[in-house]
Computed example of a mutant assay.
Amino acid sequence: SFARPLIAKRQVEIAELEGADALSHGATGKGNDQVRFELTYQALNPKLQVIAPWREWDIRSREDALDYAAEFNVPVAATEKSIYSRDRNIWHLSHEGGILEDPWMEPERAMFQLSVDPQDAPDEPEYIEIDFQEGIPKKINGVAHGPISLLETLNQIGGKHGVGRVDLVENRLVGMKSHGVYETPGGSILVEAHQALEQLCLDKETLHYKEIVAHKYAELVYNGQWFTRIREALDAFVDVTQRTMTGTVRLKLYKGNIILVGRRSPYSLYREDFATFGEEDVYNQQDAEGFIKLFGLPMKVDALLNSEGVRRGPEEPDYSKFKRD
């Protein structure tokens, strides 16, 4: 989803450099990508016209697109026998079309390109450590990487163990459902590690609210609303939450599974001396009694009002008996 605004942004930049008056994309008239491309065009240069062949020409199916490519000698990887619609970038590889249009059908083993079948993955698990600095992954097993190298390395490691496969029926923005299979080995590892660190370093209220924000952020990106003020505002919120997101996460990769086995941070809010069930001096367990009574007061009042002879009907109280300051 977030690849389209980047591609479209570059399209607009090149069009302006070349003095072009129109842009074109190859998205179908049924999917989300047409929206993502064209919302970006509108946000960055609404004066450019849009040419969308799937909506304007006689291309109505992938078979039509293959015929067009053959007629004009356009080299394409897809064939009648392997007619998957694939989209690959450094983050993931998506597969749609072909037998996947029937969600009952199991994907073919030969379809996958970034990850081995978990059954064929190594019989021994592999441990990896990822170091984060203010929310940004910086090292793998103590070795520093730039962002591209880091993701490429995690794709290779994760793919070897068959992790990051997702079979998803999604709700397209245009109103219909679609079925796709995704390979995201490196991204899946990073998400698991980052969430583990956030559990350690964020307080309860911030962590819970960030989970709410994450759903809204994902919706904006999915719907192509990248170049919007609300996305920028949510970025500002996330930036604040990442100030203390520094530490190391240890994971075990085994036959399609990403297993969290360790995490540490100088900003950890977890304190063993606070959480222990043994004897300690930082927490008086007798204090819990008053907290429970106050926390449960609404439930207690409701129970009393519902008990026999207590709840009275819609009578107005006699406010004259109340004291006033």
Results as ranks from 00 to 15, higher is better:
S1W: 08
A3Q: 05
R10N: 04
I14P: 00
I14M: 01
A15V: 05
A15F: 00
E16W: 03
E18Y: 14
G19I: 05
A20L: 01
S24N: 07
K30S: 15
N32P: 06
N45P: 08
Q49K: 02
Q49P: 00
Q49F: 08
V50S: 05
W54E: 08
W54M: 09
R55V: 04
D58P: 08
I59Y: 08
L66Q: 09
Y68Q: 02
T79M: 12
S82C: 07
I90V: 11
H92Y: 14
L93Q: 13
G98H: 10
G98C: 05
G98D: 10
I99T: 04
W104R: 10
M105N: 02
A110M: 07
V116M: 10
V116S: 02
E124I: 09
E126W: 11
E126D: 01
E129I: 01
F132T: 07
K139R: 13
K139S: 09
N141K: 11
T153H: 13
Q156N: 09
Q156E: 00
G159R: 03
K160F: 03
G164E: 06
V174G: 13
K177M: 15
Y182K: 14
G186S: 11
I189L: 12
L190H: 09
Q195E: 09
C201Q: 07
L202N: 07
K210M: 02
V213Y: 12
A214C: 01
A214S: 13
N223W: 05
F227R: 07
V240I: 15
Q242W: 03
T244V: 07
T244R: 11
M245W: 03
L251D: 02
L253Q: 06
D273Q: 06
A275H: 15
A275S: 10
E280V: 00
D281W: 12
Q285D: 15
G290R: 11
L297T: 15
L305A: 14
L305R: 15
E308L: 13
G309C: 03
R312A: 11
K321A: 12
K323C: 08
R324S: 06
